[in-house]
Amino acid sequence: MQTDGSRPLLRVDGLSKRFPVSPVWYRRSNSFVHAVDGVSFEVARGESFGLVGESGCGKTTTGKLLVRLMDPTCGRIVFDDGDEGPVDVSTLKGKPLKRFRRKAQMIFQDPYESMNPRRTVFDTIVEPLKVQRMGSHLDRLDRVLRMLGLVGLTPARTFLFRYPHELSGGQRQRVAIARAMVIEPSFVVADEPISMLDVSVRAGVMRLMEDLAARLEIGYLYITHDLAAARHTCSRIAVMYLGKIVEIGETETVLQSPKHPYTQALLSAVPVPDPTVTRPPVRIRGGVSPSLDPPARCRFYDRCPIADDFCRDNEHPPLQDKSSGQMASCYRV
């Protein structure tokens, strides 16, 4: 991935997050949801790295950990954008943490909730600049106007003092993107940035994010359950299942020849926009895998169509190179 020998923007190593579950709801005490369970991957500078998987598999939690909106239970996140030496994000405090926040931003899942209803577009976008005490008042106005232009909310002046209810869903999402980009971060977590949007604005927002990535050399963690969108946006992707990365590699390779049975099921479930095609049945067993204190064996065991006794009696399989850099965690491929 790092051909020129330079260090990656972000190196995630054995990252985990467990949430204790209150014994009021679940009879056993000291139970944990293993939302993120020992994940490792790298994101290069200017790269779009995709994270896909079903709802509740731990994508958003991973994103929040990477920008330190949440503290990990264990694991390391080494961030290095070339400005200063590498830092371990998981242990940052005080001034260095504030400097990190200036470089890492997150765009949230729901454009309807990501804007405060009582704040104007200007207030929303300028806030990170204020928090970071960047620029004079005029400077800030200038930057906000420039961002509005970049995200296609033009003429920019007419949008400055609008409130969220005066914007469409697509426009709000652009405001959220402008807010994340205004401090020119080097890393952005984009959580389902288009899933709430209509087709007509989807393609536009996808292009916008690509343009900004190229122009500002931003590295993205692009979270989605839409494989087609990931294909268009990401050079590499990781597929998550119950807190574990089960497959990782170049996007085209993973989508054209998926190795893990879960990735295969996921791909075969995507509807095909061609009425003359009949998709074969999806190969996955019904039911849900236990997310509360999961047994040590393969997390996919209960739903896997090809599981055998070896899978039942052994630990969760390690991620292994299955073909020139495409890694999957499965004993049977």
Binding site: S200, V201, R202, A203, M206, A228, R231, H232, L267, V270
Partner: peptide, 24 residues
């Protein structure tokens, strides 16, 4: 036509997405 081509696909050719300008 715009609705059909604004949709990215997972399999098949990776086509340029057309952007439908404006809003309803």
């Amino acid at each position: 036509r715009a609705l059909t081509s604004a949709f990215p696909s997972v399999t098949g050719e990776k086509h340029e997405l057309t952007v439908l300008p404006g809003e309803p």
